[in-house]
Write a protein that binds this DNA or RNA. Structure first.
Lengths: 207, 207
DNA sequence: GAAGCTTGTTACTTAGTGTCACAAACAGGC
DNA sequence: GCCTGTTTGTGACACTAAGTAACAAGCTTC
């Protein structure tokens, strides 16, 4: 309950709750019960309450959990409160979709730069940002500090960008391409793979 | 080993292996060891071998696993071989990125239609497809059969599309919006939430 | 003040995971 | 042809996490 690391399972479930809570907040709800969270996450209500009660008494009996305060509490537990700078690579369709969607902003991530090598894209506005040339990465990295690099580039360019990010001290890379990226062991690569997630869902719900 | 359902954990890991195998194949590799898979998935090599050996002897001792045949075997285990029709909703940046990326095609998913309500988008080509008006959904659903609906629409439109998909008999919905979607209990909604996945990664690798 | 929820918490059972260990099989070098 | 090194396949076992049931405490509403 102090500096102990959460287990993988607990952290995964807390993240899941966070997702539902954020969505529920967006839909205008202010309070939610463990039963309701259970319906959206497929996690046992008792399990949810136990996960949460291990860190404090966040709920009100007979009412449920206040969404705003629970979001804040979970983010404290996950030690991810505050703002985190992320850099986005690739200003194609995917990059633009990410930059303008707000999915990251809702969770405390600030896109501090969007980079591309295509001269026709550099200088163009995307959301509230302007596309910068990839060569400016190192100076931006020094100025503001980048915690996460998001790769929305073609497969063939992904490893090179990852290498540069590693050289700049970035420890977390979120890979939207289908490249298999090699990094030192102290760097984490998370690859988005919606098709595989679909296969997983298919197995359970069509068999 | 016959009709028993896999446990959640096993199915999740198999999907994860599939992801890495597909990536490795793309990178030109033809064979891979459990040790190598372990490095990309953070799953114990012994665990990987046990997961696989439960269904047959797929590897060659001293060599590793043949990537092509292992991909096929895992897809058989997950019972997701063959083609699956998916319908894509929303022809904005995200929809176009999905339609042109090939991430779904690589895993046996065929995009059988891309729909939008914006008259300026209907009729426009996106990848190998042409954007159809949303009103044509029901006829397409009857003609070809849709197994999965992918929502790349704004939050406010997501629930309505989901309702129509449910009415058309679709059982799996992949939601890229941040809407909280309600469906009957026999329908599965999988919501993409990259920001939450990032928070999860942040917890483990920056704390 | 009473009825009905919902949380917080305990105890117990069940199932999955990590780990060590080792034999069997394959490739490559000599 | 044989030896060396590598990698799979598999057993045993401890450990941890997750599912389940049950119930008291506390809040809201009528």
């Amino acid at each position: 309950m102090t500096t102990d690391r959460l287990t993988l399972g607990v952290a995964a479930r807390l993240s899941r709750y966070l997702q539902v809570l954020t969505q529920a907040k967006r839909m205008g709800k202010s309070s939610i019960s463990s039963q309701a969270i259970s319906e959206y996450t497929n996690v046992n209500p008792t399990q949810i309450r136990r996960d949460l009660s291990g860190f404090g008494k966040f709920g009100k009996r007979g009412v449920g959990y206040d969404i705003d305060s629970l979001i804040e509490q979970i983010r404290k537990i996950l030690r991810t409160s505050g703002q985190h700078n992320i850099a986005l690579f690739g200003a194609g369709n995917l990059g633009q979709a990410i930059a303008t969607s707000g999915v990251f902003a809702d969770h405390g991530f600030r896109i501090c730069g969007i980079f591309d090598v295509d001269p026709s894209k550099v200088g163009e506005p995307v959301g509230e940002l302007t596309v910068q040339h990839y060569d400016e990465l190192s100076s931006v990295a020094e100025d503001v500090g980048i915690e996460v690099g998001v790769l929305a580039v073609p497969r063939d360019a992904a490893q090179a960008v990852a290498d540069d990010l590693v050289a700049s001290g970035v420890k977390i890379i979120f890979n939207y391409s289908d490249a298999l990226i090699s990094v030192p062991s102290d760097v984490t690569v998370h690859t988005s793979s919606p098709a595989v997630e679909l296969l997983y869902a298919l197995y359970f719900y069509l068999s």
